[in-house]
Design a binder for these strands. Structure first.
Length: 202
DNA sequence: CGTTAGATTTCCT
DNA sequence: GGAAATCTAACGT
């Protein structure tokens, strides 16, 4: 079943939906602010794009669920680097998940993109995700959306302010209602309200 | 429609 | 060595 909002967006030309690329300063803030502010923005990879509707924040200090709780390793190095870059990791040995690096250089903190509403390149997404039975299913999870958009660990460290992978403002902002809940799929620091969801109001 | 088990490999202890 | 920021198919209701 396709949602009404997704149908409306699909009819428009993609370029009419995309605004400016978010600047580095957008990401140079605390992880919670960055995560919340990403809701309603548009993740663009080459010809595919989707509105960000679910994000989780992972903090630098005192967050035992964050990968950076183990300190700087080969995997987590980028999270301690300059903001506005991509942290892509392999989850459960199968799924690649996309994070956005927040906080000033030298500080850990990132935002996990957990769900999108497809707005461009939907046909290509369908071919990349033959398992999807509905269009909502294309990008309704962190591993799903990377598969649909063709994002993988080769994008580790990619600069989100230029190049093929960017996040942009939405030209015609839709109406959203917002929700905050604990994060999904973790056991440590599991009670913190760091999962942010936007529901598009028809 | 809701719940559950299994897949599969990287990473850190 | 074991847990892991998940997804899917298969089953039961």
């Amino acid at each position: 079943m396709r949602s009404g909002a997704a149908c409306c967006f699909r009819r428009r030309r993609a370029k009419d939906l995309f605004g400016d690329i978010l600047p580095r300063s957008f990401y140079n803030r605390d992880a919670v602010t960055v995560a919340r502010s990403l809701l309603g923005k548009i993740l663009v990879h080459e010809t595919c794009a989707g509105i960000i509707t679910e994000v989780e924040a992972y903090l630098g200090e005192g967050d035992l669920a964050a990968h950076t709780t183990a300190g700087i390793t080969d995997r987590t190095r980028v999270i301690f680097g300059a903001p506005g870059h991509a942290y892509v990791y392999l989850s459960y040995g199968m799924h690649e998940c996309l994070n956005v690096v927040a906080e000033a250089e030298g500080q850990a903190g990132c935002a996990l993109i957990r769900a999108l509403v497809p707005v461009a390149g939907v046909d290509l997404m369908r071919t990349r995700r033959p398992a999807s039975k509905t269009d909502r299913d294309l990008t309704s999870g962190p591993g799903k959306l990377t598969q649909a958009l063709g994002i993988n660990r080769s994008h580790y460290g990619a600069d989100l302010t230029q190049g093929p992978l960017t996040i942009r403002n939405q030209r015609n902002e839709a109406n959203f209602t917002f929700e905050v809940t604990p994060r999904i799929g973790i056991t440590k620091s599991a009670d913190l309200p760091l999962r942010f969801i936007a529901r598009i109001v028809p």
